[in-house]
Write a protein that binds this DNA or RNA. Sequence first.
DNA 1: CGGACTTTTGAGTACTATCAAATGAAGTGG
DNA 2: CCACTTCATTTGATAGTACTCAAAAGTCCG
Lengths: 223, 223
Amino acid sequence: MSPDTSHPGAPDTHAADLAALDALFATRGAERRVAPGSTIEAQGATVHTILRLRRGCVRSCIYTKAGDRKILSFRAPGDVLGLDAGTTWPAAQEAVETVILDVLPRTAFDRALEADPALQRAVRAILSAMVADHARLLVLTACAPAVDRVRAFLAAHAARRRSPGFVALPMGRRDIADHLGLSMETVSRSFTALRDAGDLDLNGAAFYRLTDRAPETPLAAAA
Amino acid sequence: MSPDTSHPGAPDTHAADLAALDALFATRGAERRVAPGSTIEAQGATVHTILRLRRGCVRSCIYTKAGDRKILSFRAPGDVLGLDAGTTWPAAQEAVETVILDVLPRTAFDRALEADPALQRAVRAILSAMVADHARLLVLTACAPAVDRVRAFLAAHAARRRSPGFVALPMGRRDIADHLGLSMETVSRSFTALRDAGDLDLNGAAFYRLTDRAPETPLAAAA
DNA sequence: CGGACTTTTGAGTACTATCAAATGAAGTGG
DNA sequence: CCACTTCATTTGATAGTACTCAAAAGTCCG
């Protein structure tokens, strides 16, 4: 019964709690602009600021010693970055396109958090939503074949951007591949397969529309 | 107690905060015993209680509509269950072996949470640790081949149970498979491969010891 | 128009899943 | 205590999906 958070699987977050977050950034926040492709916060760097994404798309990714990259999530406007961090950033934050961020010093954020119960609830709700999002991705990558992963990804992406017609896809095939645990080529072939099956309309490589008869996601079933 | 939390990747949790959790369960908690293999909380069921695992091993798993099962994590004594839940359990909680739980009504937990800043910090720390754990699993399953996944799993499991010699493995091959995104047979073959390579000593199917020269985990690298 | 990059398509390979059977362990009842 | 049932694990053979290497086609700018 909540108007709901930006994360589909989020536990019940009261709008009032999220408003506390908005107010905090509105009154105390500075602004930061980042160019496409550049790193906003490096993996392992010290957390000096809490960030709220105002415009653009950010990828949160982890690099392994072997040089592999895993994109944990793509963040959309309204998302807050850094709440799961301890003293250092567990994942790199990178701008997929031009990005505008609200910036708040961590010390200021912690002070506000200590004093405001609504803010505390909001933070817990966001962390729970992150857990739920990761769980969804774990299920998807473990249980679904390539085409279904891509379809589910496109469906989720379109749901976040409630635009009427074609949906813009800011990230490239490589990014999608590293998010879904596939190779770039397999992602591309999945796009082609979905198009040939009539499930997907493509307008160039970066705009798409899913057919209404898109299959169900292979997600949670009741007990 | 431990200077650290039970989760290796947890952000900096002050021992005092975790103590607040211990105290809460110690003073207000009832006890519950569950038989091996049975469901403690069903997926989608209403959350009436917060649970703390006192003895035994619990698996948190998600069932898909297609009937697939994904085990998100195995919980060890000291772990708290239900902190990421909204009104319903996002994952089923099942006893791998005989389990003893501390039980606290959710209403009581929420009241205590509202009043105790240390408890709030503890909850945030645990949620962050869950995010980190899921991220680790995502990287592992996306980037590592079967043998490496199994090796990493066995290493992590042994690390949680600081026992001198052989380590007990309460869960079966099927459970490990559903956790790592592999088939039961591939898990079994990986055990055999590790044994033949000299990386693993097996004592029956449920007790093992990893050779000291175990390769590094393919995890996070600095920026 | 050319150059650099991204995406798509192609061909062959490798890893893991699936199906199936044998071996091993554990508990039950005679 | 042993024979038998039952379930878990291991091993074997085969097939399928996705990866790798490689090249062509498409896109975006300068």
